[in-house]
Simulated assay, not measured.
Amino acid sequence: MTTNLTSDRVALITGGSGGIGRVAAEKLAATGDAVALLFSGNQQRADEAVAAISQVGGRATTIRADIADETQMAAAFDQVEQEFGGIDVVVNTAGIMLLSPVAQLDLADLDRMHRTNIRGTFVVSQLAARRLRSGGALINFSTSVTRLQTPGYAAYAASKAAVEAVTLILARELQGRDITVNTVAPGPTATPLFLEGKPQELIERIAGMNPMGRLGTAEDIAEAVAFLAGPAGRWTNGQTLFVNGGVA
């Protein structure tokens, strides 16, 4: 990670303690953004992420909150504003993936995904719409599975298709605010969310389906986040950006 600390912007990253969220936080911190890493469970992992950013001269803090709880999230936004003076970028990577064919799906799993992936995205997006400063950016997360029609992914893909709908409409609702709203839709990416529970043979087969011959990495996705969060991405608004090496 570089230490080109040239920005005075502030970013809030949900799911920021691991996977794509952590790498995105490191990427934004490397350009000088102060970053608040929001997490729901593992305090040690969150502290390690903050330590890694601090060691190269970045500014970072952690906040524990449930993204689907509007009271906790409002308090999280308050904390970031009090500590850093405002919020310019919100990166909403937090989400869960529970897989099953439609006929066998436990509806409790459907409800869990709806709560985190849809309600959580809506809560974060609503607060971002109210709190982001002019020139800000909201970046939500979908998945390329919404276009791949992969068996077993129906409920997860449905929850992420809702994220795309909310994002695209919100971009238009914020007309005149100078705030961009976009969605990043990764393909299969080598993170714990994707790898957990999959046999190596399946992972290799999925990687082989990509024209680039590999899975994506968290770094690949973080590059797209940095683009949308930075000055180069100001004319990209109301879009779903598929970052998947050409798999869909």
Results as ranks from 00 to 15, higher is better:
2 T>H: 14
3 T>S: 15
6 T>C: 14
6 T>D: 15
7 S>Y: 11
10 V>G: 02
11 A>I: 03
11 A>C: 03
14 T>W: 08
14 T>I: 12
18 G>W: 14
20 I>H: 03
21 G>Q: 00
22 R>N: 11
29 A>L: 02
29 A>N: 07
33 D>V: 14
34 A>G: 06
35 V>I: 00
39 F>I: 08
42 N>L: 09
42 N>E: 11
45 R>V: 14
45 R>T: 13
46 A>N: 03
46 A>R: 01
48 E>V: 11
49 A>M: 06
51 A>Y: 02
52 A>R: 13
55 Q>V: 12
56 V>Q: 12
59 R>H: 13
59 R>P: 05
60 A>N: 04
64 R>N: 11
64 R>D: 09
64 R>T: 12
67 I>T: 10
68 A>S: 11
69 D>H: 06
71 T>M: 14
73 M>G: 09
73 M>Q: 07
74 A>W: 09
77 F>T: 12
77 F>I: 12
79 Q>T: 15
84 F>V: 04
85 G>Y: 05
86 G>T: 00
90 V>D: 07
92 N>P: 07
95 G>F: 06
95 G>R: 00
98 L>P: 01
99 L>Q: 07
102 V>W: 13
105 L>H: 07
108 A>G: 11
110 L>K: 09
110 L>M: 14
114 H>A: 13
117 N>F: 03
119 R>G: 08
119 R>I: 10
119 R>T: 13
122 F>V: 11
122 F>G: 10
123 V>Y: 04
124 V>S: 03
124 V>W: 00
124 V>A: 07
131 R>Y: 05
133 R>A: 08
133 R>H: 04
135 G>Y: 00
139 I>C: 00
140 N>R: 09
140 N>Q: 13
147 R>E: 14
149 Q>P: 12
151 P>W: 02
153 Y>N: 10
154 A>H: 05
156 Y>K: 00
156 Y>D: 00
159 S>C: 06
160 K>P: 00
160 K>M: 08
161 A>F: 13
162 A>Y: 03
164 E>L: 01
164 E>V: 06
165 A>G: 14
166 V>I: 15
167 T>D: 09
168 L>T: 09
180 T>Y: 06
181 V>R: 02
183 T>E: 10
184 V>M: 02
184 V>E: 04
185 A>I: 12
190 A>Q: 04
192 P>K: 05
195 L>W: 06
196 E>G: 10
197 G>M: 02
199 P>F: 04
202 L>V: 15
202 L>G: 13
202 L>D: 14
206 I>E: 08
207 A>E: 00
207 A>H: 08
211 P>V: 04
213 G>V: 04
214 R>V: 03
219 E>I: 10
225 V>H: 08
229 A>P: 10
230 G>R: 07
234 R>K: 10
237 N>W: 06
238 G>S: 08
240 T>I: 11
241 L>F: 09
243 V>G: 08
247 V>Y: 11
